[in-house]
Amino acid sequence: MKRYFNLGLLVLLLWVFTLLSCHRETVVTPIESTKLLNGTWKITKALRNGTDLTSRFDFSGFKIVFQDSTYTLDSLVPFPVTENGAFHLDDPKYPFKLFLKAGDGDYKELNMDYPINAGVRNIIISFSPGCSSNTYQYTLQKVN
């Protein structure tokens, strides 16, 4: 009889502890930040049709400064635009396209990735400045 009593007590205590261990879970939805390109960016890697040209061609003459919705450009390398102008992203939170508009011209659409590699934010853009069969991919990093 005593053994049954002890077993009942144990089950009761387990039930109480189980109930006490429950708590309301708060689900926090992460808020993706808006991507701001503001700053000066330079080329750190350049591919032509997959061939790495970074150390073979002088890309140091390229500099693009994004500020709010405009950009200014110093370009001594092939690039989709050659003059200063306006820009916007297809989605400020999840950008996959960068649109550049030089002067009064039309917007040029560039494919874009925005990864963080080794703790550093990169912009990777791809485009064809000459023949459409030749694809260039530039990796840009912000100048500190």
Binding site: R48, T51, F57, V77, P78, P129, G130, C131, S133, N134
Partner: peptide, 11 residues
């Protein structure tokens, strides 16, 4: 010359 097909705005 590489690429075989190119314009003057290519490297």
């Amino acid at each position: 010359i590489d690429p075989l097909s190119a314009m003057d705005n290519d490297i």
